[in-house]
Write a protein that binds this DNA or RNA. Structure first.
Lengths: 406, 406
DNA sequence: CCGCATTTGTTCATATTACGAACAAAATCG
DNA sequence: CGATTTTGTTCGTAATATGAACAAATGCGG
């Protein structure tokens, strides 16, 4: 039951029903392909005539294509329909603290090529380099004409309206435009998004299909910081000033360590990779100082994780503490948003079998209802490139989204 | 950008545009009344012809009515339109721990009559008493034919689909049906809702009109427990198992007092009225024991509040601590949901001028961005009967909501 | 091999409705 | 009193959902 926004509404026109039904058909094909026109008509409870007309529109604009006929017990064999994905490509870009990843992928998120280079922090130089590499990448794969757009994922808050990066601490960016300048430099439409939200979009649009496609969930990323993408009823929550989902800064302990954000005891100071690492090394966590100390020690989080897998007691204990606090953080999500499931991404998923019982235990003890306590936790390994998949989803999703109406 | 739910979608029919535009007109009249047909046409960027046709439909079914013509600088004087509210009535019911409130109100939430009786905890007896009192109330005000339905607000989780109260600790209810039995007993449609959500709906539908009507906000209730109704883009978030909004149980201190929910250091153990009261009395907070102790002392939260207003140092210090923790709790909301504003309801709003600077300070120190730190906090005094207004909104809102489509 | 049943996909007449232009009504102004 | 302006209505037109009729394709039983 939604209230109509009288400041900004979309009135229905003569062609609104067609747009809506067209999009429903497109999504039904996406989720149930291969599927015949007759099946679509049955699922939509509509005459086959209208399906024919809508499908021919979708065929004309290349959204879908006809496959082969298929056997059926009797009667005329149905002609199967598929979404056109393999020859519609996306350039997915993931800008991280140290490296930038560039991937050519199809609309399903299947990778075609992947390359990496050291992140250039200066925005204009980064855009120039990206433009050059994108042009080369597309040329090398004879994909210039097939590219539908560029998806750009950044570690920071993004204003979707202007496309500006409001704040990306890891890159030192504040109110920086990259979307429009990259679009101008390449000639392709560019979609930009904050990393946790992009990961959430990847799950929604490129994850499971059909009946268990997630549409009410939270995607929590644990890396240098802790962030989240929140999806409610198939839509991302951005917040009034684009700062929703900052779970890294929920207070865990009023007397806890000082956080970079200026407050004390933020979740991030307990569960970020740096926090875990410094706990392992026995340092007190002081964000400003820690980075230097860790650099000296030449240890990374993956070292700690592999040692924990090998049975190193100190590593295991450091991760145990991280898991306890992460459990507390996730229980905030469980009690306040009550999602159908929670995805967890980040390096820490490499030791999921070790930490998951601890996390589950904390959630079980803190969840208000037994149903909420049972909220499924799903780890997503870094090896599946969640952010790059998210970048792909940025370009593909708008073509399948519900038309805005009322 | 919403993903279409292929398991449960609403396909557009020939009459879908009409339903959508009809509802837009109805809402425009609601928000800008009195308003003329010509004004509606301009706001909707549509010909006046269609407005005439849609308005006459709305006039026919009694949703709106024609008022008087009004002066204009030149040309034919416009005929003003209004939403029919004064003779469409609602029975609003608020079931609380000790008392149950019964109000007859119009569609705008204007009270016509109010009565109270001691809450009957046994559901069947409560329904029977309610049915009798409702019949009397309507008869006494010659309102039987004007009543559009019953709104019932309960202090607990509600399953909207089945209408059952899943869990209401204050009443000791678990999986109890009251909606359908009250509907059967009275013959009126009954809408049931959890208290914080109802308060949020009251703000959205009966609060400010026009351009600053809230549609992205959180309503936090502080009383025996701490709960919240979350509204995103004009729609309430219920959660996968109807348990979203339970901010009372976010962890504040891992070593804090034991909460009734079984966990330690929940927000509620610091900021509920019982917590404040026992802090004032110098007791350690032990939920199970405290209620008895407080009963002995014969003090209530309102006593503490009035003493604080009179300058009682001990009361002020107890409230100061409550405010500090409430600030921490609200900063969770600010950082995770980033609402446009936060409403705070409950007895504690009586000393809002004393606690608000403290709360603001904590939020400012913990909010991740300066914009988020500036999130407006709006106290709502108990004297405006927020829950009863919410109960009214339950009945009125569905008639104005956006049609479900796609 | 030929009806016959069955299922798929298309075509076409019909009804609904947005759209826009023309028109009628009501008022002001010079 | 006519010109002008604004409001509200009417009506022909175009778009499109709807449903029935039709054509196409296939298997089956005689």
């Amino acid at each position: 039951m939604r209230k109509i926004n009288t400041r900004s509404f979309v009135r229905a026109t003569r062609s609104t029903p067609r747009e809506i039904n067209r999009q429903i058909i497109l999504n039904l094909v996406r989720e149930h392909q291969p599927i015949s026109r007759a099946d679509l008509a049955r699922r939509m409870r509509v005459g086959r005539g209208m399906v024919t007309s809508l499908v021919s529109e979708l065929l004309d604009d290349g959204s879908i294509y006809e496959g082969t006929t298929v056997d059926s017990p009797r009667g005329r064999k149905p002609m199967m329909l598929h979404v056109r994905t393999h020859d519609r490509l996306v350039v997915a870009i993931d800008v991280r603290f140290s490296s930038t990843y560039l991937m050519l992928a199809d609309f399903n998120g299947n990778p075609i090529a992947l390359e990496t280079f050291d992140t250039i922090v200066e925005p204009e130089a980064l855009v120039a380099t990206l433009a050059k590499r994108i042009a080369q990448l597309l040329k090398a794969h004879r994909a210039v004409g097939k590219c539908n757009g560029i998806g750009l994922v950044v570690p920071g808050m993004v204003d979707q309206r202007t496309g500006r990066v409001l704040h990306a601490p890891q890159l030192g960016w504040r109110d920086v435009d990259v979307r429009d300048s990259l679009a101008e430099a390449t000639g392709f439409p560019v979609h930009i998004e904050n990393a946790p939200i992009a990961c959430a979009l990847a799950q929604m649009w490129l994850g499971k299909r059909g009946d268990d496609a997630p549409r009410d969930f939270v995607y929590v990323t644990v890396s240098d910081g802790v962030g989240a993408g929140v999806v409610v009823n198939g839509e991302v929550i951005r917040g009034h000033n684009n700062s929703a989902g900052e779970f890294g800064h929920v207070p865990i302990d009023p007397l806890g360590p000082m956080c970079l954000c200026g407050a004390r005891g933020c979740l991030e100071t307990y569960t970020s990779n740096l926090a875990t690492l410094s706990r392992y090394l026995g340092h007190e966590f002081v964000p400003t100082a820690t980075r230097g100390l860790l650099h000296e020690s030449r240890l990374t989080i993956t070292d700690v994780l592999s040692r924990a897998r090998e049975g190193d007691a100190q590593a295991m204990s450091a991760l145990h503490a991280t898991a306890l606090h992460l459990g507390a953080g996730l229980s905030v999500i469980v009690n306040t948003l009550n999602p159908a499931q929670i995805f967890v991404g980040g390096e820490i998923t490499e030791v999921w079998d070790q930490i998951s019982p601890v996390i589950r235990g904390v959630i079980a003890s803190r969840a208000l209802t037994s149903l909420a306590a049972a909220t499924p936790l799903i780890p997503e390994p870094a090896s599946s490139y969640p952010r790059l998949r998210g970048a792909t989803a940025l370009v593909a999703a708008p073509l399948f989204a519900a038309p805005r109406v009322a």
